[in-house]
């Protein structure tokens, strides 16, 4: 009797898990279809308006979104760190301790 109930529970769990997996696959398929739909909207930068690095940047945008994204996520943190270092030089002139705090919760 107990074995039978255990078996039924196991079957029920397996059925539910299979359903969940099918639902998840359906979700992933829909997500990928939606992403493909979004990709059909093509944005183009008009590089004719620019010269120098701006024209190069606009061309890169049109040629390869991968390299455009890669450069963006390399430039922004790198520049952030550089600017932070420069700001440190300015803040050091304030004459305050920039390495520790004493103030507490209350």
């Amino acid at each position: 009797m107990i074995r039978d109930i255990g078996w039924r529970i196991a079957v029920s769990i397996t059925v539910r898990l299979t359903r969940a997996r099918i639902a998840l696959l359906a979700l992933l398929f829909t997500a990928s279809a939606a992403a493909k739909e979004a990709d059909r909207v093509v944005l183009v930068a008009d590089s004719r308006r620019f010269t120098g690095w701006e024209a190069w940047w606009a061309n890169l945008y049109d040629d390869s979104r991968f390299y455009f994204a890669l450069l963006t996520i390399l430039i922004i943190p790198g520049l952030g760190l550089l600017l932070a270092k420069l700001t440190d030089l300015l803040l050091a002139r304030l004459g305050i301790n920039l390495r520790s705090r004493v103030v507490s919760e209350r």
């Binding site: 979104r65 455009f68 994204a69 963006t72």
Partner: peptide, 11 residues
Amino acid sequence: ASYSYKGRTEL
């Protein structure tokens, strides 16, 4: 990275 790949970032 995601928005840049989708082309919606003005660096």
